[in-house]
Design a protein around this nucleic acid. Structure first.
Lengths: 213, 213
DNA sequence: AGCGTCGCACGTACGGTGTACGTCCGTCAA
DNA sequence: TTGACGGACGTACACCGTACGTGCGACGCT
């Protein structure tokens, strides 16, 4: 009867679908089983626990990153491309992003981006310790940016929800904040992301130029 | 009998204590009530729901930031100080950090840091749009950094857990990663935080110098 | 062909969760 | 004294993750 025979990948896919449709809070083993038209306990023949399933979700999402790396390009362009690849999957799986970030994974899915980035930085002339430091800095910025971007859409938000309810800010307690409410309310996520990215790249380039080459 | 008469602050404090002692997963209304020596449903006379309680936890933690702002100092020093203030509370409430980050709050507790930062940046000569952009960039970096720092300690970690099990990395698939395992395994969080912070400050300073003053 | 084994789907059951609702009691206003 | 009211609490319900047992179909071996 079941054309597809209930496998771990099918379960993970159902979980990702459910998270994207109804948010991470809606995830339950019973719900996933129902979506698959299957008994609850059947899931445990393929997944040891709910926590492991969420780990698998994170790994699966992360493994869908598409790197289009040009080895001949400038290292700054390669860094840009890799950073944008992260943002792209966060855009593709917005509700899953929090899940991915909140569980640190020790699998090979998260290792490939690290390898690529380290290779790029080493190729640009950074020594090992520098490459690791720079990589960590970029990751911190990217993770923080993506969290802001998807955090703005906790539930499906039809209206652009500002970072602060625009009416509630007391102008005498928070003069700057209230005078900048228009700027704070609007947020072009892509432009913001690119802005910080360029800042970091520029800073790294300056430091690289100062030392040695 | 109860010397203290069960108030919302006492409930929030108990929740924070519990999170720091046993992690966010251990939080349940029954558990908090038990810790307070109180019936479960009594909590609902002061807190409308568990979600609201966690929001209150986030707000409470955030409101404990101690800013020691010197209006006469250089704007770079003031930015440094404000960034470190965030890191300090994340250090003080490591297990709560994920809770704070994962729920975006629209209360005044999160507004005061924003006001301070905007005032600092405006004072340094940035116009409104620039100040907001720069602030968002710093927040993204800080949030990402703190998540890495506390993510390394999901449960109480007696040993320094490396970002990747040092034995499992295939040297032919991941040559850079495996050759840099010592650097990847060790992480001086304060040094890493300061490194990225300096990079960002330097980049912002350069951009500010390029335009106008 | 017959038989044993094994993998996997599934039902049941248990302890735990958030919280709606009703009850009771101590305190204060009139 | 009495009335109202706020808060503490018990009970109850729907839902959760998952340990355990049962049954069934496919397959390997003799």
């Amino acid at each position: 009867m079941p054309a597809e025979p209930l496998s771990r990948p099918r379960i993970v896919a159902a979980a990702i679908d459910l998270i994207e449709r109804e948010g991470a809070d809606a995830v339950s083993m019973r719900r996933i089983a129902a979506d698959l038209g299957v008994g609850v306990m059947s899931l445990y023949n393929h997944v040891p626990s709910k926590a492991a399933l969420l780990d698998a979700v994170a790994e699966s999402v992360l493994s869908e990153i598409e790197f289009t790396d040009d080895p001949d390009a400038d290292w700054t362009d390669r860094v840009r491309m890799q950073a944008r690849a992260f943002r792209q999957i966060a855009h593709h799986y917005p509700r899953c992003t929090m899940v991915v970030v909140s569980r640190q994974l020790r699998s090979t899915a998260g290792l490939l981006p690290v390898e690529r980035a380290l290779a790029t930085l080493r190729g640009a002339g950074f020594d090992g310790a520098e490459a690791v430091r720079v990589l960590r800095m970029f990751i911190a910025y990217i993770v923080g940016s993506l969290l802001r971007e998807v955090g703005v859409t906790p539930t499906f938000a039809p209206v652009h929800r500002s970072e602060v309810d625009t009416a509630k800010v007391d102008p005498v307690l928070f003069p700057e904040t209230s005078s900048l409410l228009p700027e704070l309310a609007a947020c072009d996520h892509e432009a913001e992301f690119e802005f910080g990215l360029e800042m970091l790249i520029q800073a790294v380039a300056v430091q690289r130029g100062r030392r040695g080459r």
